[in-house]
């Protein structure tokens, strides 16, 4: 028999953090997101996969409103995405984003890349922001590059800095849009390792990637998209070994052959 213990207030694991409800988007006549319903729980790692042009990037970018949507709603931590303006900027600060092309600020040093948001957006003191930035850069393995400029780093290093830059904002959720597909093969692992570590630490992540290894080790759920629709959702193991839809089978057949 166990004595009644004072239960710690449970960390809010499992409650929905990012919720997309009936989201549609058109580019002119092109219907790129079709009735997307997706709920990502706090601490969950969702891997988005699908053929080119299926709308993965659009979905990812809609979540921090880099792309506007036609109809439906998207909310983060219970708050619907506001219109462009101060409120949206505040919300974006809580959503980390890592781009395929890294997009580090070219005129800033690595350290400045990581401290710019905390200082200007979070209004942290420079010394505090720098201390935290150095910790993060060490954590992603580029601490000794702090004073260089982005162009002096390899792609893998730049992408790890980009992850540190996003983490410095203490985001509630991180979005990754094909973070390794612009990298040479030997650099992919170093970036994935950082992402796996992040997942282990409980970060909520939405990751567009075709890296099955990552999906299997770190993913809680795979979302398969095709033609703007979510066609299939499952655990990574089930999805890769036993896909249900023809489109998923077809797609997996193609990427496994390569």
């Amino acid at each position: 028999m166990t004595a009644p213990v004072d239960e710690e207030p449970r960390a809010a694991v499992g409650e929905p953090l990012v919720v997309l409800d009936g989201v549609n988007k058109w580019y002119g006549d092109l219907h790129v997101l079709r009735d997307i319903n997706l709920s990502v729980a706090r601490g969950e790692v969702v891997v988005v996969i699908g053929p080119s042009g299926s709308g993965k990037s659009t979905l990812c970018r809609a979540i921090n409103r880099l792309e506007t949507i036609g109809d439906g709603t998207i909310s983060i931590d219970g708050e619907p995405l506001p219109e462009e303006g101060k409120a949206l900027a505040r919300l974006r600060a809580d959503v980390g984003m890592v781009f395929q092309a890294f997009n580090l600020f070219a005129h800033k040093t690595i350290l400045e890349n990581v401290t710019l948001g905390p200082i200007k957006v979070r209004k942290q003191k420079k010394a505090d922001a720098e201390e935290r930035a150095r910790e993060l850069l060490d954590r992603v393995g580029v601490g000794h590059q702090a004073d260089k400029y982005p162009a002096q780093l390899s792609g893998g290093q730049q992408q790890r800095v980009a992850i540190a830059r996003a983490l410095a904002m203490e985001p509630k959720v991180m979005l990754f849009d094909e973070p390794t597909s612009a990298l040479d093969p030997e650099m992919i692992k170093e970036v994935l390792d950082v992402m796996v570590d992040l997942a282990k630490r409980g970060m909520t992540m939405i990751v567009v990637t075709h890296e099955m290894g990552f999906a299997r080790t770190a993913g809680d759920r795979v979302v398969f998209m095709s033609d703007g629709q979510i066609v299939e959702e499952n655990t990574p193991e089930e999805f890769f070994t036993n896909p249900q839809s023809d489109r998923a089978k077809d797609f997996l057949g193609k990427i496994l052959k390569h």
Partner: peptide, 13 residues
């Protein structure tokens, strides 16, 4: 455009 997008994504006005 990636530069401005990255800036928007960290919450800059």
């Amino acid at each position: 455009t990636g530069q401005a997008e990255a800036a928007r994504a960290v919450g800059m006005t």
